[in-house]
Nucleic acid binder design. Sequence first.
DNA 1: AAGTGGTCTAGACCACAGC
DNA 2: CTGTGGTCTAGACCACTTC
Lengths: 243, 243
Amino acid sequence: MNSASRDDRLPRYQRLRDDLAARINRNEWRPGEPIPSEAELGAHYGVAIGTVRKAIDQLVADAVLERQQGRGTFVRRARFNSSLFRFFRFQSESGERRVPQSRIIRRRSVPATSAVASALRIPVGEPVISLSRLRLIDDVPLLAEEIWLQQSRFAKILEIDTAEFGDLLYPLYEERCGEVVVSAEEILTVETANEMQARLLRLEAHAPLIVIERLALDLERRPIEWRRSRGPADRFRYHAEIR
Amino acid sequence: MNSASRDDRLPRYQRLRDDLAARINRNEWRPGEPIPSEAELGAHYGVAIGTVRKAIDQLVADAVLERQQGRGTFVRRARFNSSLFRFFRFQSESGERRVPQSRIIRRRSVPATSAVASALRIPVGEPVISLSRLRLIDDVPLLAEEIWLQQSRFAKILEIDTAEFGDLLYPLYEERCGEVVVSAEEILTVETANEMQARLLRLEAHAPLIVIERLALDLERRPIEWRRSRGPADRFRYHAEIR
DNA sequence: AAGTGGTCTAGACCACAGC
DNA sequence: CTGTGGTCTAGACCACTTC
């Protein structure tokens, strides 16, 4: 249990939620696997089943767990095909949702600039992994991305051959580093392309670019990755729900 | 109760939620006022207090109600200053969040085009109210908006002097028509200004514009309003959370 | 002190999945 | 048939607000 007793002032269902979240993060149950039944968890933690339900409710709302009546409660596999990828509507007016091809252009270790440090909530100068990649559909460049990762949590990323990265990074983070992206915050702005960006994206200079800054968070709401993506504004289409 | 017994197959807390939502929509309790206590509601509807809590939980999650421990549960007043207005960050890099000034340019009744009809989920040709307005900060144009409303629900909007509309429409909808906006879906794209838009927004022709299409929904998820807003892309800044 | 929402319990019964 | 989650109940105690 350990961390479940972190803060006695918090209600039990909160501490239970946090403990379950940590255990899932620790890969105690793998995606697709069921966690113990509500009754078992209640017995194990010494709380009523209603309290267990309330804790699980939250993780279901966070899309971390999935209930299946009569079967059990399961760790969700693949949080990668849904809303987090929304801005790939970026171009596919033409129809279906395809995963863009990915080409890593550069990978290096650098000290965190103040902007990166404040986004990732780490000290300035701390080593971070910096990735540059280009995303394409049908070999047409769609997005130029700069990506920053805290090196201490993602050291493995420096070891893998970039050719083996695949087209999606989040599954890589999960498989190689045990880091799971569950939510994100995005800020959208528009700027004009400089010469390098124009060349990379095969646009004319000064063409309008959409800029998407995204901070990806794990299920304990700690920053995992910060990225800045740029793509041609005229092919952009972004869907959002407001509550 | 009436509508609470609409569908016996639904769980009680769902039917209770719907009934409370309808009563709030009917202005049975005004914004800022408390609804009856959980115990009272339980007695009135003949359900356990836990069931009442579950129904209220949902309305709290929808930002329709607000709990205050020791005081009661209140109908939220003014859902107008929070996330629904996010894109007014549109320009105020300079600091605080201000409500742009609003100038109604045109108001008329027209038959719904197929696009408007499908957005508002009404038959093509049904009369709708069409508004054009300009929004400004410090007399600088910021957004040019086209707005469509189902005329049968918003007939009063045709009667009020447009000079008395004020700077915000949603409070107007609520006060005059009893229609409350609780959530919305937005689609963002970028296009270039035509001559009329450029003149209106005081931009040069072909300047990039951000286009925000918004469908506003009431707490029963029925479409209330559809609008298309255009503003200078270089002053655009949009924040979104993804889950 | 009285009334409100917040937490937690213990148990009943139902609907569904899987053997 | 057994085990799972889904709904619902009735009541205890706590924390907070108001008088």
